[in-house]
Write a protein that binds this DNA or RNA. Structure first.
Lengths: 165, 165
DNA sequence: TGTAATGATTACAATTTGTAATGATACAAT
DNA sequence: ATTGTATCATTACAAATTGTAATCATTACA
């Protein structure tokens, strides 16, 4: 009954699924729940992702933003339209290249981002309620190490590419 | 610099994202990578899920299977067709109700399930390579507790409902 | 019996997602 | 300068996905 060795991965057989499966399962659930909490504010996860990136990486072109989010520029158009019509971001003229816009986060957008942050914290609290604070921190470290190991971009959910507008 | 208290969740600010976000991010990545490993065998995650459930929960009707997977019965038809045409499952007559079929896993299906299991273990090994075996086990326990806490059905990925045929 | 409900399937409508075409602009090479 | 090619945002369009409704056979209930 010793612990499994590294080259002979555990097959948790009955009772608990594999960590990899659980990761996908719980991750999907987390994404769904977060989207549900976001919906009342009129945002989709993709909206939140856009605001987040604009906040962190300053003004960018739509092309660059699409690249970061891993979605087609054509799909970004509608999302940007929606956020701009709500006054959360602005399409300002790009100084050096008149083909493109420089997307800016407005004050109102920054404020929305804070609301989103609050929702995210509530979400996290509910999601991880089964763990002690200490364990939550450990979980976060494990996940961050996995994410880094696989070259995942911080703050960019691979699923943005296919989360509805 | 003490640890955050429970009613004042940590905002990891810079450097590392929140555990909830990481969960969704890494989980999505895990699902994608698993699907990629499965593709060469001619399976989608949904296929694997069906075989898995038939193996564990004996013969079931398509209606019941759709319920378990959280997908529409109409969508299941094509998936079952594909698996049956490959001889991995069978639509046998239901003894008590001639409207429905009893879906059975064949020997060949059982063998495919083993191949899938091997792929899953390779996948897990690669996915969790950044963690020690001890940490992998801990991660699995954390995730299982979260999954149980939220009433997630063991072995059923919420995303099956929208993973391509 | 007959009337409503259920299971599998098919048909269809709605949504989502990827690609290609458009018009304006930039850049590189004459 | 001028011509050709590449890029950016946008639109138009095609393909795939997904949800709903209709169908047919069968079962359950009144």
């Amino acid at each position: 009954m010793g612990k499994p060795r590294n080259d002979e991965p555990s097959t948790p057989a009955e009772g608990s699924a594999s960590a990899a499966f659980l990761l996908a399962q719980v991750g999907s659930h987390a994404a769904t729940k977060f989207a549900e909490r976001l919906a009342p504010l009129g945002f989709s996860p993709a909206h939140a992702g856009i605001l987040r990136i604009l906040d962190k990486r300053g003004p960018v072109t739509q092309q660059a933003l699409a690249g970061i989010l891993g979605m087609f520029p054509s799909r970004l158009v509608a999302l940007v339209d929606q956020l701009e019509s709500r006054g959360l971001i602005e399409r300002r003229d790009h100084l050096e290249d008149r083909r493109s816009y420089a997307l800016h986060l407005t004050e109102k957008g920054r404020s929305s981002l804070q609301s989103i942050g609050r929702v995210a914290r509530e979400h996290q609290k509910a999601l991880l309620a089964a763990l002690t604070v200490e364990e939550q921190s450990q979980l976060g470290q494990f996940l961050q190490r996995i994410a880094d190991d696989h070259g995942l971009t911080r703050g960019v959910h691979p699923g943005y590419a296919r989360l509805k507008s």
